[in-house]
Amino acid sequence: MKLDDKLAGPAYLQVASGIREAITSGELTPGEKLPAGPKLASTFGVALMTVRRAIETLQSEGLLRSAPGVGVFVAAAGTDDSDLATLRADFEALQRRVEQLEQLVLDASQRSGAE
């Protein structure tokens, strides 16, 4: 992926264009997770907020979908950001968080019982 410096306008549109090109060329495939924001910012040589705005733009176009706590993914071709897939990813992220919290509570309980 690279910054589309041929495109005039704000940097976030240039980043969005670069990601869009990576999707259309097959460099990024449907379902693939995008690198983390700081890595993308470094790749494109822009600020993290610029990357976030580019991602928001591509999400509104239906090219990307976000799963909170999991990441940003290339949307499946021919879909408009499937609500079911988003819900499923959100549920899985929540499930992992609950399991981590349960383990923390169990560990804390065992420590205080041993004291």
Rank of each mutant, 00 (worst) to 15 (best):
E21L: 10
A8H: 11
G45E: 01
Q95C: 06
S82Y: 03
E92F: 07
V15T: 06
D81Q: 14
A47L: 13
V51P: 04
Q103H: 11
T24D: 12
V15E: 05
L34T: 04
G37L: 05
R96M: 08
K39E: 08
G37M: 01
R65Q: 12
A41N: 05
E27K: 10
T57D: 09
V15G: 08
S17L: 04
T29F: 05
G9I: 13
E27V: 06
L104A: 05
L28W: 02
R53K: 15
L64C: 13
V51M: 02
T57H: 11
A36Q: 09
S25D: 14
T29C: 02
L48W: 04
G71I: 13
V98Y: 06
G37K: 00
A54H: 05
D81T: 13
A75D: 11
G9C: 13
L64T: 10
G62T: 05
S17F: 07
Q95V: 07
L101R: 10
F44E: 00
R65D: 05
I55C: 03
R65W: 14
L48K: 11
A77E: 15
T86I: 15
G18I: 08
A85L: 15
S66M: 09
I19S: 02
V51C: 07
R53V: 02
I23M: 12
S66Y: 03
P10N: 10
V98Q: 06
V46L: 06
A47M: 13
R96Y: 03
I19E: 00
P10E: 12
R96Q: 14
T24V: 13
Q59P: 00
A89N: 04
S66L: 08
F91C: 10
Q95R: 15
P68A: 03
G37V: 15
L48E: 14
A93W: 08
D90Q: 14
R96L: 15
G37Q: 00
